[in-house]
């Protein structure tokens, strides 16, 4: 097999490992975007332009965006719950 196929497939394997081993969700969202880009390059090298187009739109933009928005929503909700609990505990007991 040619060097290009070998390199692109190896890059996909390395990117997948890095995505899984990243700890924080916001870093994982960015790494997932890079993984989507590596997959797009590999799909192009394997002579599949339709699939590459599809993967680029979805895997590099839509899914990381949704993950980032979910994570920020969850963090804001946790912050609101914490501030509500602390303001309740500050009230004088009846």
């Amino acid at each position: 097999m040619t060097a290009l196929v070998l390199v692109s497939v190896t890059l996909v394997g390395i990117a997948a490992t890095i995505v899984v081993l990243t700890h924080r969700p916001e870093n994982q969202a960015i790494m997932l975007s890079v993984f989507g880009l590596a997959l797009t390059v590999m799909f192009e090298v394997l002579q599949a332009p339709d699939v590459a187009l599809s993967q680029l739109g979805v895997g590099a933009v839509v899914v990381p965006l949704m993950i980032m928005l979910t994570y920020r929503r969850v963090r804001r909700h946790a912050g609101e719950a914490e501030s509500a609990a602390s303001s309740q505990s500050e009230q004088p007991s009846p």
Binding site: A16, F35, L39, Q47, T70
Partner: peptide
């Protein structure tokens, strides 16, 4: 973290795409 679960699920699905396209490839 459940969000990490979803990300890793997405990665695992991409493995199947690679397998499908590798089966169909011709040198």
């Amino acid at each position: 973290n459940l969000i990490q679960t979803v990300v890793c699920f997405s990665v695992a699905q991409s493995g199947t795409y690679l397998l499908l396209l590798a089966v169909g490839y011709e040198r």
